[in-house]
Design a protein around this nucleic acid. Structure first.
Lengths: 241, 241
DNA sequence: ACCTGAACACCGTTCAAGT
DNA sequence: ACCTGAACACCGTTCAAGT
């Protein structure tokens, strides 16, 4: 049964009709500007000036809305599973994820937290795509499927660990000269925190990109070695199962 | 000026007076049972049967309450900075953190998320204690302070990455036989997710403790090598700065 | 001085009433 | 059939009124 002809959204329409992408990208913009906790259905409705109830056309509830925002953020990643050089691709993706996290720090809790709320298979597809694509990349590079999954986990764990590390040490008063003041370390009783206090200058010099690259060097070397057939210390060989 | 003599909480008191520990541990119990989102000041007040406003004696607001719960969870860790074998201590702590996460999965978002909201120096001391103690351990083991911090970051990143990995793959229907069904993978269009679907049996067999140990083997070997003076591929030597 | 609870300004979501 | 908005059952937190 053919649907009755729909009036296309002609330029003369007063309201640029809502759609999922607009809703989600506006939500992301709000998360970036006012934070996750302040993103409410009502606030979002106000931003899109529409009835808050209208949003429920595009997400069944707030949790699904947040899942949608997570998907939207992850879609900013471009992963080519057919890349000729898999190490180059993984390295580039790692830096992309890092940039993403720095661009959307308020959304990072979504990235690390949303997957904990839903079993793998029930997650929105956009949240699973990076996993599928990287596993595909690794298999194409020669890993046995089970080893590709193993390698993905190592990579993902390292990457998200790094991001948590880096964002944790972000500084609030970048204009302050003294690193102790800049990090608020003066508040720590030096009796209980002698090392932490004296590490202030080192803490203040954190270079996220460099740290990420150092880790990637080790990680990718290790993975390449497994692929080449060099047996790791006590890891199963690359053709397990 | 001596305080007026206080009536000690005699056993005859009808109400076992509130205190911070009771408030926080009850909050943790609630998080474990009903989840983070359902933990409200009012619900907590009801659980302790007291006026919700009374809780504000022990935490300035909900965010501080959550920080307190985070501290409480982290206090379950026993880290001995004077341990004779630093590798053994780090390994044990890693497993302790893993067990902690499995014991309190609903609190894991707090562990990874709370530190992102407050600059290092302004965080509650209980959240910084593991950092201080592990850095102390590493310095005692012979690391230069800056390298100890570096090593801590690697360790912390790996550990939290692993936990996110493992909790992400937790299964909801453990009684289901077929791994595809158990993980809900039937929902994925096999056109877009060929690898993920075929990996179902491998996904279903995730062994967190083993995976953690494999990673620790590599990590600790790498750290020990840096300590011993063997120069890593392109890492700064152990006596940087 | 401390504690209590009413009141305020919000929430997410349901559902009946409109078109 | 779709959209709208009133209403419900909650929130965190302020603050005036009690003791």
């Amino acid at each position: 049964m053919p649907a009755p002809p729909r009036i296309p959204s002609s330029p003369g329409n007063k309201k640029p009709r809502l759609n999922r992408d607009l809703v989600l990208s506006t939500a992301l913009k709000l998360v970036d500007s006012i934070g996750l906790d302040s993103l409410s259905m009502r606030r979002l409705g106000q931003e899109l000036n529409c009835d808050p109830m209208a949003l429920y056309r595009y997400a069944a509830n707030r949790a699904e809305l947040l899942d949608g925002v997570t998907e939207l953020v992850l879609n900013e990643l471009a992963i080519d599973p057919d890349a000729s050089d898999w190490q180059r691709q993984l390295r580039a993706t790692a830096h992309d994820v890092r940039q993403l996290a720095l661009r959307h720090p308020n959304a990072v809790p979504l990235l690390v937290t949303r997957p904990l709320s839903t079993p793998l298979g029930l997650r929105p597809l956009g949240m699973l795509r990076p996993l599928e694509l990287i596993v595909a990349l690794l298999i194409r590079a020669g890993f046995a499927p089970a080893d590709a999954l193993h390698a993905y986990r190592t990579y993902y764990g390292f990457l998200y660990g790094h991001i948590l590390n880096e964002l944790q040490e972000l500084v609030v008063n970048p204009e302050e000269e003294d690193p102790v003041l800049r990090l608020g370390l003066y508040r720590l009783p030096s009796k209980d925190f002698p090392h932490l206090r004296s590490l202030a200058p080192v803490l203040a010099e954190y270079d996220g990109a460099a740290e990420l690259d150092e880790g990637l060097d080790i990680l990718l070397t290790g993975l390449a070695q497994k692929l080449g057939g060099g047996p790791g210390p006590q890891l199963a060989g690359p053709t397990s199962r």
